[in-house]
């Protein structure tokens, strides 16, 4: 499905709403982990990466401590490779710190079926043995296909499977908002 063939149905968050949600998540990460000692963020390509960087900035603003940010590409861990028509492009995983013993917060834009998170967890375990792994998402839209839940959620959005949630970030899309798209047929 191509996003260009879809029409916008509703806006869920604007730039201010996104900022508030992320700042709140930053506070929650600090609270839940009693500070940020040993905490590291891992952004899942593609839109999890700028979100993780922003969370790191907000955490640094609040606590005065910089937490490391890594980038995870989960392509090689996808469970649908044998069913796709073409091999998706692989991008680099850049986790420059040892994950063993760390409190990792996995960051992604949308939590849907849970399969991406499953792949990301496998990818992380291949890098080492973290103490804990938590999950932060900007949008939880439901429809899980495997037993996975998020520890930090920006906004819960009940959706139908026909709809598409599009998170648009300045770094990638040149605008800052979250919208629901729907087919035009």
């Amino acid at each position: 499905m191509n996003e260009r063939d879809l029409k916008e149905k509703a806006q869920i968050l604007d730039d201010k709403g996104m900022r508030r949600a992320l700042v709140r998540i930053a506070h929650e990460i600090i609270e839940r982990n009693k500070g940020v000692e040993n905490v590291a963020l891992i952004g899942v390509r593609r839109r999890g990466v700028p979100l993780a960087q922003r969370l790191a900035k907000y955490i640094s603003d609040i606590e005065g401590t910089t937490v490391p940010v890594g980038i995870l590409d989960i392509t090689l861990y996808r469970d649908d490779l044998t069913t796709l028509a073409n091999q998706p492009q692989v991008h680099q995983t850049e986790v420059k710190f040892p994950v063993t013993g760390k409190k990792l917060v996995l960051v992604d834009d949308v939590l849907y079926t849970g399969r991406t998170v499953r792949a990301a967890l496998d990818a992380i375990m291949d890098l080492g043995r973290p103490e804990v792994v938590q999950l932060a998402v900007l949008i939880d839209r439901g429809h899980r296909e495997i037993p996975i839940r998020a520890d930090y959620v920006g906004k819960n959005v009940p959706t139908s499977r026909k709809e598409v949630i599009s998170v648009r970030l300045t770094e990638i899309d040149g605008e800052e908002r979250v919208v629901i798209l729907e087919g035009t047929e």
Binding site: L76, Q92, T93, D126, L127
Partner: peptide, 16 residues
């Protein structure tokens, strides 16, 4: 490029 990163890991294995 990403494949080379895997060779540099301790656990040189992906399930791909």
């Amino acid at each position: 490029v990403p494949m080379k990163e895997i060779i540099g890991r301790k656990i040189k294995k992906t399930p791909t």
